[in-house]
Every structure is written in structure tokens, then in C-alpha cells.
Amino acid sequence: MSVSTSLSRPAPNSDVHNRDAQQRDDRGLDAADRAIVLATQTGLPLVPDPWSAVGREVGMSGEEVLERMRAMQARGVIRRVAAVPNHYRLGYVANGMTVWDVDDAQIARLGREVAAIEGVSHCYRRPRHLPHWPYNLFAMLHGRSRDEVERQAAALRERLGEACRDHRILYSSRILKKTGLRLAGARPGTASTATEGRG
């Protein structure tokens, strides 16, 4: 960002390039990356050379798609390219969003410890909104029953010890919308068509 602002007299067009470069710095994606994200976020085509198949869709060569996928992975935009299991279909039907009010001075260490406990799929620090929302640590638990989730939560409670003042387990009673589409919102007006009621 500092490099582009230090260019004192940009030639025509370079303004646009500077803006593009800055946008990539802020979000980690340029226009070509975004096209690839949109084309792959619901999954890769299951063919021997998926990159060329994606490339045909977005108007790039397979080599460029592969290169950009690797670059996005190196920058951390893509965590991994993987077979993503649906645990619900394998019997993990209970999910509990647990929320904890944890001593701020200890949360970084405890957050990492809690994240390693079996059954925890996500573990994040989020802001409190006092007085009505005191919880600053979120851990998503997955089990085959609510009993199993309760046991996992008890293990977390024990690990947090005196640093934890209060906690709750929120069970999902109904999935009202679930879609992996993240960048669809970049095209206003299309999101409502993705609505899926379940249950």
C-alpha cells in the first residue's frame, strides 16, 4: 500500500492498477482470483484435470488457475483444498454453540487449549457487549447426541477452571438457511434466491 501511494505522478491507467493492487492487499483477492473463488466455492469438477475445467468457465488456462490456487493458498486465503465431510450425514447430529465468559488476561492461552479438545471444530474470541452479552469465547461442539455434547462442554469447563465466570450451550433447534456461497453477496439481489428452508 505504501508503495502505490508513494508513486507521485502516475501515468494514465496506472491509477486503476494501483487501486487494484490496493484492493488485493486489503482482501487478498484480485478480479481473476475472485472469478476463481466464485467458480470453485461450491466444489471442483470431479474430472482428471479440474483446473482446466474451471479455466474454461472463467476464461483462463488450467495452468493459470492452478497457479492462482497455489498463490491463494500460500497467502492463506485458501486454507486447504480438501474433501469436506458432512458430519451430520455420518451421525454427528448434535451441534452445540458454546459461549464462555473468560478472563481476558488468560483467553489467548486458554483459547488454544480449548481448541484442541476433542469435538471442538471452531474456537474463536469475539467481543463482549456488556451488560447483555458477557461471553467472549465461542467453541462449536459436535457430537452424536446432546449427552455427548454435554460431556465435551464439561471437559471445556474443567479446562477453563476459575478463569471462566459463566457459560451457555446453545443448540440449533432449526436450520433456517445454510449455504456455502460466500461471495454470492457480491452480486446484490441474488442472495434471496439461494434461500433454503430445512426442517
Partner: peptide, 12 residues
């Protein structure tokens, strides 16, 4: 799915 898992904090 079989595909990329994005870090949404960095991808939007």
C-alpha cells in the same frame, strides 16, 4: 464438496 476451503476473514 471437494474443493477449496476459504479463510473468509481474508476472502471478504
Amino acid at each position: 464438496r471437494v474443493g477449496p476451503v476459504f479463510d473468509h476473514a481474508r476472502a471478504g
